[in-house]
Design a protein around this nucleic acid. Structure first.
Lengths: 212, 212, 212, 212
DNA sequence: GATGAATGAGACTTCATTCAT
DNA sequence: CATGAATGAAGTCTCATTCAT
């Protein structure tokens, strides 16, 4: 087929060599999968459509991801890793435990705000993709909740917050965030998702008796 | 019209006459649908399986509910009405606004705890059943959130709570509850769902500065 | 669709009622399956083609036979039962044990001669349809061999034949027959399959020292 | 042309040079093909699997055998030549015409007994591989039958056997043998295939009135 | 009203074959 | 010569829906 890269001045075409080309193709398929799964849902999405969106053949798709489930799983793994990396990167820039928990939530909001398709993937479609993915998604929830919990625990240790059950508090925070995101996704309010955080934050802080 | 398995000789029937029998059938189908949709998910559930579970034929099912979507919608409407009725009934027995909001949440927990299939229906499967049902589900969320908000507003009016945005607070409460329920549904913890509320309640109350 | 039976004079169509109609359809599918499997082989035959030959839809075929294997198995069972019935019927008309064994072989030749497609089914396609059917086919061989053996044993008891291992003799007879049939099937010689028996018979008889 | 994994510095290669290496590769592919075709059947076997078993790439396989059919045909030719060679070699060591026919059969049994995969190839899979191979296989049958016939004719000439139609007798012998082999292949009896011959031989001999 | 046979579009997946590197 | 990514046709099977009985 035609190379995605432009040719470069010597009258010949430059193909990314071997492995790189393969990775490129995989990436293109994952992009297409994100777009289609997010638009149509897991079950409604057809492999045909994804292949077409990725400008590949069905067989080519199956070469890289041998099955619809496998593809969805790969997409979920890839996207969640990407999201968690962003969050941890953002957290690393903060010193205060409260600020860190705070940043975690805000970063998620920002990422989802920028990548609405990914938001749909995590908030909606992964739940509708069958038991396997429900468990997987809930594990992600718990990973993230654990991350908040860790910083909340530190905050408790330094006395700036007071919560008898930081695990539950983290879960409650996460749930509150979730609902706000879901509302935004499906009803479109508020227009800029991040704006919700200004009002949400005080509620969360008060719930663990943090000084505001 | 004569029932197909009419009793004979006394000019009367042992079957509930006409309309009532029909309602019975509808009810049996809805029960079956709840069971199957909850177990398999909307897309994975087949009309065949529901008909079999309802001890009817496929054609019979289609007489009462002309389509799979229609059936799912009817089930959602029926179940949500039932749930809201229960909640309002419970609220009516309380006088204090805080206690009312409180009772609303607790009643939901109790109902879901008793009817796990219904919980799955609302928390998981309705999201995976396509855009139409996502919107419908989110409307239900908002209905319920509105109900909490109303009592929260009253509480603000009487000065027992202090929250600048009761809508958002209600949403946050609802989200927190949601996440706890989801965790219970998919990971099975805590064993008795209602037990979670004892720990969750203080968090919620503090978030709106309610005296505990 | 259109009824296969003609309408009958009263301006209305006569459908075979219920069960009969279903059996009819099954029969039509089996006929089509025999024709297609025999012509193309098990693997090469497509369900589409069989459905078309049966003037049904693919879904209709799957309603009656839920899978290609199931269909092939049903066809094999149906045909083998039919063949064995014919053989036993023919045997019943003979009194002498030798004549009975004799008749068994000859009847098979005649049936196959008349129904070449069935011959292909048993001699060729069943072997190429995968391990399950290989075992099933060999069982059929053994059933038939057992039938010959029984009469050979009787003949031994009355002293008209002399064979130390009637099981093996039966197997050898069967094998000889098989090879003759196969040759006829694939190379087309002799033109009339039954003609081969006149020459084959003395060989078989001599092999068990039967008086000719 | 340089081998891809050339040894270095001594101007010589540890790889068999050119043609020999190619023959090696071909042999390895044929071995793999025998193993896979025999285990899975012609249609079920995938070129991928054969390539993997031969420790080559699919492209490499296609270089040596440009197509699945071609490969199967080559395998059949190679194996049948090998088998016929063995048989003729064994025959050459016998002087008596009866002993020669005898040896032919026994050698086949022995070869198949030692190479069960090859037995499957000839007895089962070649029949299931489509019309082309059925004809080819039947030609092999006839080649072998012709070989027996030749010696039987000689025996008739010397008066030690008496058979009006040696062609048919040969075919019958061959068929008897075939059935015994098939039984062994699929039902596993007798454990050692050669053991069957002791009992089978007298039957065959008697069928042509040979002195035993 | 109920039944269940029938339809037909469409889903996922496999695989022989090709070909640029 | 070898590799393995890519193609695309074809295959089996599912299932919501319809309709004659």
């Amino acid at each position: 087929m035609e190379p995605t890269d432009a040719s470069v001045g010597f009258g010949m075409t430059l193909q990314p060599p071997g492995q790189e080309r393969s990775r490129d193709r995989q990436r293109r398929i994952l992009d297409a999968a994100l777009s289609v799964f997010s638009r149509r849902g897991y079950r409604e999405a057809s492999v045909d459509e994804i292949a077409e969106a990725a400008e590949t053949s069905k067989g080519g798709l199956y070469f890289h991801f041998p099955g619809k489930q496998v593809l969805f799983r790969a997409l979920l793994d890839f996207s969640s890793k990407r999201l968690l990396d962003k969050v941890e990167e953002a957290i690393a820039r903060e010193a205060d435990p409260i600020a860190r928990a705070d940043t975690a939530l805000l970063t998620v909001l920002r990422e989802f705000s920028e990548h609405k398709t990914m938001a749909r993937l995590f908030m909606v479609e992964a739940l509708g993709a069958g038991p396997e993915f429900q468990t997987r998604l809930l594990q992600l929830h718990d990973d993230f909740i654990g991350l908040i919990e860790k910083h909340l625990d530190e905050a408790v240790a330094t006395g700036v917050v007071d919560a008898p059950d930081t695990r539950l508090a983290s879960r409650a925070w996460f749930g509150a965030l979730n609902e706000v995101i879901l509302h935004w996704l499906i009803k479109g309010e508020p227009e800029r998702l991040e704006d919700a955080y200004a009002s949400l934050r005080p509620l969360l802080m008060r719930s663990v008796r943090a000084a505001e």
